[in-house]
Amino acid sequence: MTERERPRGRGASHNLHHRFERIAVEQIDDGWWQESAPASHATEVRCEQSRSAISKNRSPDLPFERSLNPYRGCEHGCIYCFARPSHAYWDYSPGLDFETRLIARTNLPELLEKELSQPGYDCQPIALGANTDPYQPIERDYRLSREILTIMLRYSHPLTVTTRSALVLRDIELLHALAQQRLVRVFISFTTLDNTLKRCMEPRAASPAARLKVIRELRAAGVPVGIITAPMIPMINDMELEKLLQAGHDAGATSAGYTFLRLPHEVKPLFEAWLDEHFPERAAHVMSLVRQSRGGRDYDSRFGHRLRGEGHFADLLSQRFRLAVRRIGLNRRRQEFALDTTQFAPPGEQMTLL
């Protein structure tokens, strides 16, 4: 791929065929060459009227059972994103389409209010942004995440927010109000402190310095903040694990977590193409370590294994994380920031006397 052909500011280099595609179209050189302008990779947004708001999962690997995802696809363009294959359900490619052809679920706030107001609703914390980032750039215009925070505050409903965007600071007054009632925790996803690596791996996500600023300002506003070092990629960013945890702690994070690289479905060929382009000298070694940590396969979807991996490299990474967290002093005050589900009350609902 020439410099002229490479899409600027995007993580994936091309649109690959997805597993649900019945007809595959391939470009070939027929000999009739002519100069043409490079293909446009501008962001397109389609509005969707969803049927439901709250998604549920039963995975024992995840610390939540319910989630809200206001957007499908993500403009951040993180090459390793495990959510890329979900775009194939809408007949879009998990490659460039995932970053450029986005779907905004514009009726999500309305549906959320209806579901929270249903008789017998059982209040449990909801994760905002479990699949794609709720504060990706199109949130500036659609403001769906802000509307969701407003509703959660009005209903006194607890939630967690996971993002790698500095746009979350726009809603700091809502997060502060939620935190005053122990209704919110924010997690900042971190992969590297290296700006050069960040630019090619997460082209439109916030810079490392901006994410540390987010942690500092949220903490100053009384909002509990954690750091998630995700994903850890062998020979790409795993050597930064301890530095990331220390930087997050120094900025004000009180908890931490990590995940190992996941390559489900179409993520694997996209990631391999990215490795060949940016790290050709170590691409084979990276994939060898991934397979060693996945029982000889590119990906292992089994519960208990998919987020951590197994084998010598994955075990060493787990030990490094535990030792660093203990030394730095993270994850010591989890109970202090436990979310409160007892305050939940739909507006206008009469509270019981007992």
Rank of each mutant, 00 (worst) to 15 (best):
Pro264Leu: 04
Lys243Gly: 05
Val223Pro: 01
Tyr299Leu: 01
Arg282Lys: 14
Thr254Pro: 10
Arg297His: 15
Phe321Gly: 00
Arg262Phe: 12
Arg327Glu: 11
Thr259Cys: 09
Leu218Ser: 00
Lys268Leu: 12
Glu281Ala: 08
Arg219Phe: 08
Glu242Ala: 15
Glu277Arg: 12
Leu244Glu: 01
Ala247Asp: 08
Glu272Thr: 12
Ser255Asn: 13
Asp298Phe: 03
Gly222Ser: 05
Leu212Lys: 01
Ala273Thr: 10
Arg322Ser: 06
His305Val: 14
Leu212Ser: 02
Phe321Asn: 03
Trp274Tyr: 06
Val223Cys: 02
Lys243Ile: 11
Ala253His: 02
Arg306Lys: 15
Arg297Cys: 13
Val267Cys: 07
Asp276Trp: 14
Asp315Ser: 13
Pro280Arg: 09
Ala253Phe: 02
Gly295Ile: 07
Ser318Thr: 12
Lys243Ser: 15
Glu242Asp: 13
Leu289Cys: 10
Met239Leu: 14
Lys243Cys: 05
Ala324Val: 04
Ala324Cys: 06
Asp250Trp: 06
Pro234Val: 02
Arg308Leu: 11
Ile233Ala: 06
Gly304Cys: 01
Met235Val: 13
Phe321Glu: 06
Arg320Asn: 11
Ala273Gln: 13
Glu281Ile: 05
Asp315Ile: 09
Leu241Glu: 10
Ala221Thr: 04
Ala283Val: 00
Phe321Ser: 00
Arg282Leu: 05
Asp276Phe: 14
Arg302Ala: 12
Ala314Gln: 07
